[in-house]
């Protein structure tokens, strides 16, 4: 196989390439934030006039809460009753599986194609 000679990239082209990468990376981080889709849902079911007993805390736990700076049950109630919402739809699960599998599939396919070129140039050239 003929040896592939890559074109020489201009300085400006190099800088543009780096900027493109950075914009994409920062976008991936901030787009979910702007769309308010980030983070998981936390619910708080705080009972009225919470007591340590109604929050299910025993004597040792109460002692630790006091040491941590929570003097009464009301101040700690928010933390104690916080629960994540793990409900999800099968549809979004399938989308996720499809995205992950699709990603690896595309990548392995393209890689394989490029890899064959590399090997044939390396060992036949």
């Amino acid at each position: 196989m003929a040896k592939y000679i890559p074109p020489v990239q201009s300085k400006i082209g190099q800088i543009i390439d780096v900027i493109v990468l950075l914009v994409l990376a920062i976008g991936a981080l901030y787009v979910p934030l702007f769309m308010k889709l980030a983070g998981s849902d936390v619910t708080h079911v705080v009972p009225e006039n919470p007591t340590w007993e109604s929050l299910g805390q025993n004597a040792t736990m109460v002692e630790k809460w006091n040491q941590l700076g929570y003097a009464d049950a009301a101040s700690a109630a928010e933390i104690i009753t916080a629960r994540f919402d793990y409900s999800f739809s099968i549809g979004s699960l399938l989308v996720m599986i499809l995205v992950i599998v699709g990603y690896y599939f595309i990548m392995l396919k393209f890689s394989e194609k490029e890899y064959r070129d590399v090997i044939s140039e390396k060992f036949d050239g």
Binding site: P32, M35, A38, G39, F84, Y103
Partner: peptide, 18 residues
């Protein structure tokens, strides 16, 4: 996926595009 599914998809979309 339980809680951070959106970030996961956003991230992988990023890697697909690059």
């Amino acid at each position: 996926f339980l809680g951070y599914g959106t970030q996961l998809v956003a991230m992988i979309s990023f890697y697909i595009i690059v």
